[in-house]
Nucleic acid binder design. Structure first.
Lengths: 129, 129
DNA sequence: AATACTACTATACTTTTATATACTGATATA
DNA sequence: TATATCAGTATATAAAAGTATAGTAGTATT
């Protein structure tokens, strides 16, 4: 873990840090990346298994996003020569390491909600309803 | 900081964690949020100052994204009754705390690039060119 | 012979997001 | 009087992202 006092440091080390952040945002970009990564955090899964686990995703989107994640080295794809052919998707090491980023996101999101409770009340009520 | 062994935990505490992650993704969503937050990490700035600091952003986008960030409690807006009127934007506490998430993103992005160096070489060369 | 399973792809379309360009009103300076 | 500054807004358009619906090939079951 690189030591950073404040984000200020980003400007002292601009190129690699900015690229690193872009890579990370890229990993989560799009409506379905998060649910797909989430599904694979519990172990390898076949195409149809993921499709069933994520309500309302279309095969087109699932296929597209899996390809994207594979190209970015976050997900691996293994063809099993069964009948019919099945394809297994799993997180790579990099993919699994994303849980560290998710932890930070959860921590921020929770404290942010707490700090803004009053303002967010109407929103929360909508979400529950 | 909430202790999480693996992301598995997310399914044990689903609603608040998923909402927390969504809030965080929301904070960075869109092409210009990241640069804006980045600019404000170095202290409060006026509209035109931010506009000048971020090449190619249009006033429409800047206005829209600042409004969005303000509504989400990440940025504060202060009107100064100077002539002509100036408006100061600054990160809220929540906004500043985002640097923790950015740290995690940088750490992941850097180790991801290292792990995938070979595969990413052509991409890197494009970026440099 | 008809149906179902696997993992997708193709085409057309809608929705969302971002851009381009010009403009506002109040004040100050040249 | 003409021009520049501030912080934006208005309108139209282009590009990107996502959806809907149907279809592919190969095998296996009913």
């Amino acid at each position: 873990m690189i030591a950073i006092e404040k984000l200020n440091t980003i400007k002292k080390c601009p190129v690699s840090y900015v690229l690193a952040i872009q890579d990370t945002l890229n990993a989560f970009q799009g409506k379905w990346k998060m649910p797909i990564i989430g599904a694979l955090m519990f172990g390898k899964k076949r195409f149809k298994e993921i499709e069933r686990e994520i309500p309302k995703i279309t095969p087109r989107m699932l296929s597209q996003e899996l390809k994207d994640l594979e190209m970015n080295g976050i997900v691996s794809r293994t063809v099993l020569h069964t009948t019919p052919v099945t394809v297994e998707y799993a997180l790579t090491d990099s993919g699994e390491q994303l849980h560290q980023v998710l932890e930070a996101m959860i921590a921020w999101g929770l404290q942010h909600r707490e700090q803004n409770m009053v303002k967010l009340l109407p929103v929360l009520q909508e979400e529950v309803a």
